[in-house]
């Protein structure tokens, strides 16, 4: 086969991307985001203001942090239902350490992140050591355990009056930009590098793509899964830290059902529920779409109940676009 023939084949393969349809399927979520922004700019004059944009950046940060954590289990064809509850137990223990016991805020932050990572590690151990059949089950268990503990250790009472250092991440600004959003950007850049450029990161895709192939390629699957769930828990702790700063209090029912918003962001962002497919930037776009939808619907005076329904429709529409795309590529 000559050079010409080879390059022709390559052209055929990449040709798909060059068409309009190919573009839509590749950047579906991004296009959705752009359309959403344009529509809201037209519908509401309050939308495209610096104030409002920074507001969105701030509002999106908690979900964005949970979502980047959630991306990892989903990439391995798993899920982490416990992140909302881990967020709660993390901030309640931080409250006990730094407010009730009056210990150093730095220690409080460390405890918050460590509790998050610790519960994540527990999820990983349940999956890899007890060999529970699916993370849906193990994390459903820890979801209830963590929530229960968060209520027990504080007798269901909220904790307020956190020191400035703890509030910093969630409440401060650099110029007009909220610190929490800068944190999100930093975390996403780190995760992007982690997933695309490190051995463990690539293994996460390999395990989601085909666990048996990965195992037979010498990958220590259990070790990678432990890292995946630990990081997911750690991100829940970090999201908790941002949340405490924003509302200046910690309450045991914090983060209730947040895991579902995180899953929604990951899926809207184009990740496959069956593992192996998904990107950090897609997830960021997913989180932004949810935040902007909420914000825009608020500006348009749409009630919270309606917002919920709209987000439901968006999730289904986003996945349906993906289904159409895969159907097309299978036929070709």
């Amino acid at each position: 086969m000559g050079e010409a023939a080879i390059s022709k084949e390559q052209e055929q393969v990449s040709g798909e991307k060059k068409t309009v349809k190919g573009f839509v399927s590749k950047f579906g979520a991004l296009i959705g985001l752009v359309i959403l922004v344009i529509t809201l700019t037209i519908l509401s004059d309050k939308f495209m203001t610096m104030n409002n944009i920074m507001n969105i950046a701030r509002q999106s940060s908690i979900n964005a942090l949970l979502a980047i954590g959630m991306l990892l289990p989903i990439l391995t064809a798993g899920i982490d239902l416990s992140v909302g509850s881990i967020l709660a137990i993390s901030i309640m223990t931080m409250g006990i350490v730094s407010v009730n016991m009056g210990l150093s805020p730095v220690l409080g932050i460390i405890v918050c992140l460590a509790v998050g990572a610790g519960f994540g590690l527990l999820n990983g151990l349940l999956l890899t050591k007890l060999r529970l059949p699916h993370p849906f089950i193990s994390t459903l268990g820890t979801m209830n355990i963590a929530r229960g503990l968060a209520l027990i250790i504080t007798a269901a009472a909220p904790i307020a009056g956190f020191p400035f250092l703890i509030q910093f991440l969630g409440s401060e600004f650099v110029g007009p930009v909220p610190v929490s959003f800068l944190l999100v950007i930093a975390v996403y850049v780190i995760f992007h590098i982690f997933l695309t450029r490190t051995q463990t990161g690539r293994y996460i895709y390999a395990i989601g793509g085909n666990r048996e192939s990965a195992h037979l390629s010498g990958i220590n699957v259990d070790r990678v899964l432990l890292i995946v769930y630990t990081l997911s828990g750690l991100m829940a702790g970090l999201a908790g830290l941002v949340m405490v700063g924003r509302v200046n209090s910690a309450f045991p029912l914090a983060g209730l059902s947040y895991e579902l918003d995180a899953v929604a962001a990951v899926i809207i962002g184009g990740a496959s529920f069956f593992g192996g497919v998904g990107t950090v930037w897609g997830t960021l776009i997913g989180a932004m779409i949810i935040a902007i939808l909420r914000n825009g619907l608020n500006l348009l005076n749409v009630s919270a109940d309606f917002q919920m329904a709209v987000i439901g429709v968006v999730i289904i529409a986003a996945v349906y676009v993906d289904v159409l795309r895969q159907r097309k590529s299978k036929k070709a």
């Binding site: 895709y205 390999a206 793509g209 010498g218």
Partner: peptide, 24 residues
């Protein structure tokens, strides 16, 4: 298909998979 390859990943990733260490 089920034990040798990652079907939905590109060829270069498949080829490097079992010796990722050497590409670090």
């Amino acid at each position: 298909k089920n034990e040798g390859l990652l079907l939905d990943q590109p060829l270069d990733f498949n080829i490097a998979l079992a010796n990722m260490k050497s590409f670090r």
